[in-house]
Design a protein around this nucleic acid. Structure first.
Lengths: 243, 243
DNA sequence: TCCAGCTTCGTGCCATGCCGATTTCCCCCT
DNA sequence: AGGGGGAAATCGGCATGGCACGAAGCTGGA
């Protein structure tokens, strides 16, 4: 779990720049740490030693501890009293629960987007979709993946409900790490792409019920895909028989 | 914003008791502070001076600052860089957004409860409902209010989805303070009670779609009631003309 | 040889001190 | 008299040190 000893003090202009724009140190540490966890640099379940991270991040223990507290509130790490912090594990049960909630939130966001988004917003979204499709035709998985995520986040943004966006962002961040492990299988990929075609069409028609339905279905299938890649039964969570 | 100078060190057995069961100081402070904010002891928008609270809670600044960080992550307080913390204001726009999300989450929870709750669970819920109705007939508003909240929380619990419960609890806590200011008007009260009758009936029938629908409607009406009590138009959020 | 108790070491938690930023108030200038 | 600028008080942010809890290693007895 060795991390590149990046110096965070450099990212804060100590004397230059206006009072706007620079963030307090614990905030910087929190962001950096969140990225490290979400990107999987810190493996799940591993104990995090304060002093070690202090040396690597070149900060004192106080801002680091404060960062741990907010990450614990976000559910990314778990703090055991008097025994330090471990990066939070994501069991299959929690993953299923989380995806179910994400599905409802995003479906709701789709509904709202149909009502509140401007024509320009939808046009931009459609353009993103077209670019994503281009990547799909070239089988550029990574670019597809990122654009896919951007589209989902954009839909939530277009809903115009900040609370909804914050809730969704929280859950999405926790799921992101799990999704990084390639769990997209070619035969399912086509299905996901078809969903997206339907989704964009429904949005452009501003058909709220249809948008809700297709997003709900799309994300439910997302859980099926994840469960299959984990060799689990999507319903009972029992280990799947492997041949 | 003077708060009773409760001594938190007492709540932590310094030498007695086993190692299990005592929480670290910042956790205790966080809970206490959360209660203080939710119950309205700390008025919204007021700046919180670290030193002042340190004296009143009899703790040092470090655990207090850590508590602020997690409460900020929960959205209960807002931290302005180098300018301290203020308890988060809840504008009408955010209140509407929050209630909309709560409505969807609770409606979803109702669906799940229809599937996952045991017969005993539903019987207990029904008993709570009966007690609530007894309070209603006697016009005991406070007891009714508390039981009402308990029922809603219980439904979310019965859904068996911990993520859903956590998200809902977060939002519910932030709304609670606003709801405390009596915004129940007698003529609307009867309507809310009728909703609850329908709700319990749908749950006992394990009719998921009906449960979803009635909860959704009930909470949407809850927003209408709140907007009216704030003299705002529920849709446009424009100030309502008062005669 | 194995278990129990103690000791030591590692580690996290909390208090305090110093530094920088912000705000406020007073004085001076217009 | 009113407005602007500067200085002091105030408050929050970060670093460090002391303290307490938990875990592992060691030693002595059964």
């Amino acid at each position: 779990m060795t991390v590149a000893p990046t110096d965070l003090t450099m990212s804060r202009p100590v004397d230059a720049g206006g009072p706007l724009g620079w963030r307090s140190l614990h905030e910087t540490v929190t962001s950096r740490l969140r990225d490290l966890i979400v990107e999987g640099q810190l493996p799940e379940g591993s104990r995090i030693i304060e002093r070690e991270l202090c040396d690597q991040l070149q900060v004192s223990r106080t801002p680091l501890r404060e960062a741990f507290k907010v990450l614990a509130a976000e559910g990314l790490v778990e703090i055991l009293p008097n025994r330090g912090a471990v990066v939070g594990r994501l069991g299959p049960r929690e993953a299923k629960a989380m995806l179910a909630v994400i599905a409802r939130l995003e479906a709701f966001a789709g509904e709202l987007a149909c009502v509140h988004a401007t024509d320009a917003d939808l046009a931009a979204l459609s353009a993103m979709h077209d670019r994503m499709m281009a990547h799909y035709r070239r089988r550029e998985r990574l670019e597809y993946f990122h654009l896919n995520q951007d589209i989902h986040l954009e839909i939530v943004r277009l809903a115009g409900n900040d609370i909804l966006r914050a809730m969704h962002a929280r859950l999405h961040a926790r799921m992101k790490r799990s999704r990084f492990r390639g769990n997209d299988i070619p035969e399912n990929w086509a299905r996901a792409v078809a969903d997206h075609e339907e989704l964009i069409a429904a949005l452009l028609r501003r058909d709220a019920p249809a948008t809700n339905a297709v997003l709900q279905r799309h994300l439910d299938e997302s859980w099926i895909r994840l469960a299959n890649s984990l060799r689990l039964d999507p319903d009972t969570l029992a280990p799947l028989a492997t041949e």
